[in-house]
Design a protein around this nucleic acid. Structure first.
Ligand SMILES: [Mn+2]
Ligand SMILES: [Mn+2]
Ligand SMILES: [Mn+2]
Ligand SMILES: [Mn+2]
Lengths: 149, 149
DNA sequence: CATTATTTATAGGCGAGGCTAAATATCAAT
DNA sequence: ATTGATATTTAGCCTCGCCTATAAATAATG
């Protein structure tokens, strides 16, 4: 559209535009859930390794301030991913736990793939922390097949 | 910190925390530049394939409204990535062009790697649109080695 | 050249995600 | 039990990225 269908590139334009916009929309969508995934994954880790997940611990690990964490935890509670007992730490709901485990799996698989491709462990961990949120189920399965081979 | 150094896991805790926080900070940092990268890459594509990049075209491709694009273009101009000539479209500065080419390279390499690993083309394109922004130079080089092998 | 269509600009609003500062509440220790 | 340290809550404030509605400018057309 925008210009009449006479221009040479316009013939394929409409489908091209649709596939393009789909990718960008998925990307924006992923961005909205990235933080929630990092939180539940971190909370699961803290509970397993430290026995509890308090706001200050979470803040320290994420590198943000504690009031920032407090506000986000409210959102996570509203979304039924966690419950809170003041001064007793944060706990995952069943739904939160499922999301945490799914995120952890993706994180591990992505990191392992990077390592297998010769990336050094530090870089692999750092890059995986961002990449993990954009890996679809299909891509994840392809990664797992690659690791098994 | 937080607890005395007596707890069993605390011995490694301090370095663990630092590496963890580094990954999250990189992830947040990448998120800040994601959008700018998508814009300049798209603008380069539009100029090459359509001869010009107007606000309405950009909006249509990204799947957002035109005022959203107008506002973002102001930011990109402030950051010296683009220049604008009203009703004549958007143009990349040298800096913007360099960023666009770097982003395009990453996009193509990531998409190619996914395809090589057996991901179908549509999924590869969609996932690459998000993953590309979190791939460091080291990982990119590993990807390129993998593709050559 | 006057009218219409398209493009761009502007105003105002909303939620997410970050911050600092200050008030509360709990915990720990003397 | 009092005091001091630590943890949590709350209150503003900011920027970014999205939106709708509208106005203004330009382009295209009869
Ligand atoms: Mn992450
Ligand atoms: Mn992770
Ligand atoms: Mn992208
Ligand atoms: Mn891209």
């Amino acid at each position: 559209m925008t210009k009449p269908p006479a221009a040479p590139e316009s013939r394929l334009a409409s489908t091209e535009v649709e596939t393009h916009v789909e990718a960008f929309q998925k990307s924006r969508d992923d961005r909205r859930t990235e933080l929630m995934e990092d939180y539940v994954e971190l909370i699961a880790d803290l509970i397993e390794h430290a026995g509890e997940a308090r706001q200050t611990d979470i803040a320290q690990r994420l590198g943000v301030t504690q009031p920032t964490v407090a506000k986000m935890l409210k959102r996570l509670a509203e979304e039924n991913l966690i419950t809170q007992r003041p001064y007793r730490g944060v706990f995952l709901t069943d739904e939160g736990h499922r999301l945490a485990m799914a995120t952890r799996r993706r994180h591990q698989v992505v990191e392992a793939v990077l390592c297998r491709l010769g990336v050094d462990p530090d870089t692999a961990r750092n890059d995986a922390e961002g990449i993990e949120h954009h890996v679809s189920e299909k891509t994840l399965e392809a990664f797992e097949r690659f690791l098994k081979a």
